[in-house]
Design a binder for these strands. Sequence first.
DNA 1: TTGTAGGCGTTATCAG
DNA 2: CTGATAACGCCTACAA
Lengths: 341, 341
Amino acid sequence: MAQLAGVSQATVSLVLSARSDGKAATISEETRQRVLDAARSLGYAHDPAARRLAAARNNLLGVFSFTATFPTDVQHSYYPFLVGVEQEAAARGYDLVLFTGSSSGGAGAAGPDALSRVRLADGCLFLGRHAPGAELKRLVADGFPVVHLGRREELEGLAWVGADYVSASRAVVEHLAALGHRRIVLVREADDAPASADRQRGFLEGLAAVGGEAGPEAVLRCADPASAVTAERVRALVADGVTAFVAEETDTGAAWRALDAAVREAGLSCPGDVSLGLLGSPPPDLAAAPVPTGFDVPRHQLGAAAVRLLAALVAGEEAQEPLVACEFRTGATAGPPGRRP
Amino acid sequence: MAQLAGVSQATVSLVLSARSDGKAATISEETRQRVLDAARSLGYAHDPAARRLAAARNNLLGVFSFTATFPTDVQHSYYPFLVGVEQEAAARGYDLVLFTGSSSGGAGAAGPDALSRVRLADGCLFLGRHAPGAELKRLVADGFPVVHLGRREELEGLAWVGADYVSASRAVVEHLAALGHRRIVLVREADDAPASADRQRGFLEGLAAVGGEAGPEAVLRCADPASAVTAERVRALVADGVTAFVAEETDTGAAWRALDAAVREAGLSCPGDVSLGLLGSPPPDLAAAPVPTGFDVPRHQLGAAAVRLLAALVAGEEAQEPLVACEFRTGATAGPPGRRP
DNA sequence: TTGTAGGCGTTATCAG
DNA sequence: CTGATAACGCCTACAA
């Protein structure tokens, strides 16, 4: 302890914690310097564990992901989010501690106290849709600041930030409508993720707003897009008056892949005969193809927004707007409706 | 606290810490179950901070990198190492805590206690060559388990793991020699990194071992490879009897780039007229080119080895072999010496 | 086998 | 303005 070197005992706490604090006048300059010198010569530093134990702040923000943080398969990693998280945290003077969920490989990860270690930090950010509700609930019930990255409304009181898929999807439809399209079909997968539901909702809203036909036949919900969305199917729909298709983005990109393949196989030219929209970003392996009209999820900004919210919670402030706007991408797959064959 | 639910008070500590411990006979099965049940129903879990403060283990391994952990420029990130680190940590039942060095953007990062927060964990792994010696020294002096990823012998008592560049470089030279080369030139940059020194040493050792000419003219040390290694230079050397070149790998890949460009510009065919070796892996943007004869740094394994060493230190065991072997890559840029023009 | 007491390093409260 | 003192939650003897 530094008090041995100086003369005081827990006065050191005052001078050390009030480093750049506002209330600096509470201690005499002399002892202050004495303490500072002693601390420096001893190479003294706070013990973060003790500091936190004593109900103080750590200046640490936790990040917990339920899949491996550094997957060998770099495909669906949270890297882009984490970039934003790290930048915003740095900007706000917070340090990051990343808890890897996959660690303790099946042992601790599954255990009931898998999440307890996040209490090392002042608050924690959760990534991934597999966050166990019960544990999160307990955390927020204990008053521990928690933010979930991704819409999560089932859990009462759980703060979250998410992309505004509804508005973004709607904007894509409106863009198509502005080009003259009225009969537009959404291709989506069968699984019921909030992100899918949001996109469909935005799609239907957009359709309704522009006076398009928003009946149930406007959405193609298929368990296996590859086999459901065939060339004949597309040809038939086009013959029936459909002039544009939009696909939802998923991990696999199955809907977009199927749509793309079917149109190509049907011998339809893309911006010419039919217009295509993608409710999200194309899978990396299709990035070389003509860039799809659609929108990009602002992953960096989402990460940053999550950190902002978490910082607010830690500081005891109120939550702000959880939705982050997506960025419209003009792309090259949408044009005026082709003449019906 | 769980004692309210059960009947005991710190007995809970015994049963909870002896979870899968060897000495299980120290507590009666009945109270044990009672405590366990109470803990489960209350959702109780250790407070990691308190646990650590009480001189116990956390089961947390720290990772500290001095550059951004998630750089926007994905070029020189530690990602490949971290993959290995995460896997090995998971395999050993450790959880990972990643401290981002760049956070606290210039404020806390530079502060004297920037490293103090790693004490939250049972030990810490340091990545990057900018680790401040003084702070590391203090950490090891305090008996805190520390492992540095990358050779670091100047700091007495600092444990480290690194790639065996010497042997790997030597192997490349010996491969060339086996093909018949005797006059080989090393192109390296001027800056004095341990990794560069190691490669040069291995190069010279190899040359000496095969009876090649290992004089000082065998290594081209240039501040700016691009301007120093020109087509004429290469042509002159070849005319003088040099049949093979090797370049060191660096962040920028400048040496290899320069060599590659110069040879091409000199109108020399690569496996035909001259053989080329790369002491490391090619930069990503040159990965499409014919794969260079050389070696790959086993980044995953390095990360894993670092975790193993750190775990050993935490457990109070002794350090093991710090060097990890690189993997020879046959490649397509080396063949028998061409006829001298 | 279990409960009791002391201490880990820090902050917060409250007298001097 | 400063110095005691009591938590914070847990662990490790030691005593019952």
